[in-house]
Design a protein around this nucleic acid. Sequence first.
DNA 1: CGCTCACTGTTATGGTGCATAATTATATCG
DNA 2: CGATATAATTATGCACCATAACAGTGAGCG
Lengths: 170, 170
Amino acid sequence: MSIVVRPDQPAAAKPAVSRPAARRAAAGEEQPAALDDRLGYWLRLAQMAAFEAFNEAMAPLDLTPGRLGALLLIEASPNAHQSTLAEALHVKPPNMAVMLGRLEQDGLIRRVDDPANRRANMLRLTPAGRALLRRARKVEEELEVKLSAGLNTKERAALIAALRRIAEKS
Amino acid sequence: MSIVVRPDQPAAAKPAVSRPAARRAAAGEEQPAALDDRLGYWLRLAQMAAFEAFNEAMAPLDLTPGRLGALLLIEASPNAHQSTLAEALHVKPPNMAVMLGRLEQDGLIRRVDDPANRRANMLRLTPAGRALLRRARKVEEELEVKLSAGLNTKERAALIAALRRIAEKS
DNA sequence: CGCTCACTGTTATGGTGCATAATTATATCG
DNA sequence: CGATATAATTATGCACCATAACAGTGAGCG
């Protein structure tokens, strides 16, 4: 992909104005747009591509990253409370509530009153939820393979480690 | 961050950091959290962290990733058309229009009629736009340093290359 | 006990980003 | 000329996310 945009017009007038001499020297030719060696920029584009691929693959299962994340965590930690889940998924409690409401309506999870704390709900997968999760895992594996195509195992691990360091910065 | 949620045990010991699936498997535990060795998952979290850091740093300049990207591209490619810019930034034309409208209102860019095509606008930075860009570059550099802290030059390059490959998959 | 305060979850509400559809003006081509 | 394509814009709707306000419950303390 090209970052530097070429005006349709043969640009008779070069900028001639102050163009910060960042590191244009390395490119040798025209000025690089200063966008394509930015971590944040590629992070954004990569995430968008991954998101799109995910949606496409999971559409038949009616799963979004958030929904799948919730199901996975509920499976891994049955009887977890909503607030705990919300924190783990970086979702605000109000939005967690509506999302779980939909999951429950779809018959994928159940909310069981916690006898030890009648304010709280314990979350559990229904059989349907478990079944969906099995299907999702297959789809997700293929997706992961596609995403990390071109990366060997070691590169992939390094990538995840790097992303993790960035993510855990805040 | 911990992926496996423990509701009952009040997380006696701090969950510490998440544990890679491999280590868990070696430890004989059978239920992996299944979230923390996913490219898509960490991509999302890293992007969120980067986005947050960006917003915080750029708030005084009233810049978003999109706005900054537009300014940078306009600087690099003066007289570019809106549609070209929209494509480069992965923004739909309608949204590009309102965004550029705001940039123009803020006195950062100008829309000049293209004499060769009276439907199109040629985009240029105003002096104020150039000035803001100078400030933004400084902020952005510090930000980039923070983001890639813990990564040496080579690792950073590898990370960007990997992200790029993912982004360009679609 | 009764009061206050913290917590769990929920609903209501608003902003923002992004997408599509429709509109206007211009360009291009048969 | 007339049909179709392009560039930009406006209008509109939706999904996501955040905050605020609320109801029900638990827990500490005089």
